[in-house]
Nucleic acid binder design. Structure first.
Lengths: 151, 151
DNA sequence: TTAGGTGCAAATTCTTTGCACCCTG
DNA sequence: CAGGGTGCAAAGAATTTGCACCTAA
């Protein structure tokens, strides 16, 4: 699963312009770290990014990869899957439900929706595997975080 | 966000019957750990469960909480939010997309669906906060894991 | 030149494990 | 009473941080 060369180039261009606009230096390491995430469509974790970049920049260190990934995330150039920097959380609610997640504080609330439960998946999904469950994740800012932010 | 007492009792009953059927001992610690997750609707992480149980069972240890949570997960009595035991993963695809996730190996593939993009959220969501994005997570078993499993 | 960036190594934080004692069934 | 379960302490894994040197602009 590799992203098309054309798409990668587009992402690289955007990355370089955002960095320049933000006064962030375009170091060899950063360029290759971003390229690795941009071209790898498998949603790699920090270590996988490190392994990939290492082949091209043998001296790169894992902590630079971490620092750069979070910087890219803060710049909005990449995103994290799930809620970032969070531990495993548990749920005893076994009925079919969906989640509202506050991207600021991680607050997660269950909600129910018959409409969502009945969603029809696109045929193309079958190419990926056997589907077991489908749920909707709504991301936003919870009331408490909203009021704090208006200071 | 506390689960109704009636619902908690139902979950406790199910827990006890599943444990008995599986020949798993109903220790004081396990009962209180399950109760904590069952009544806490905030999707607590291991440490939060530990803090809660501690008030009722001061001698309980964090490692017992971990062991018990994974046991409950294996028994299907509780679930984890997101993919369990996984590190933070990064994604450079900024266009609106959804995910197919293999619950076995963690493989995650992007897919697109105009139907999903246009989902109408229930009004009740507003009570939780300001919605930013909505995405669908499809969980299943990927092709590779399926074929391995048929051994 | 020079402020920000990097690599190294050590520190943190979260989670798991080995072992001797304990308690449920 | 027996075997699984627990607490403790130590090990492991993942991630972050302090610091002196390096390099893009």
């Amino acid at each position: 699963m590799t992203t098309s060369l054309q798409e990668v180039e587009q992402r690289m261009a955007r990355f370089q312009s955002v960095c320049r606009d933000s006064g962030i230096k375009l170091t060899h390491q950063r360029i290759e770290i971003f390229r690795e995430v941009a071209q790898n469509g498998e949603h790699p974790d920090a270590d996988r990014v490190f392994q990939g970049v290492r082949q091209r920049v043998p001296t790169v260190s894992l902590d630079t990869v971490y620092r750069t990934l979070w910087m890219l995330n803060d710049l909005g150039l990449i995103k994290t899957l799930g809620t970032p920097r969070e531990r495993t959380r548990f749920d005893a609610n076994l009925s079919h439900h969906h989640h509202f997640v506050c991207v600021q504080c991680g607050l997660t609330r269950d909600f129910y929706s018959d409409a969502f439960d009945g969603l029809k998946l696109p045929e193309s999904i079958k190419a990926y595997g056997h589907v077991k469950t489908t749920s909707v994740e709504v991301r936003g800012i919870c009331l408490e975080c909203s009021s704090k932010g208006e200071s």
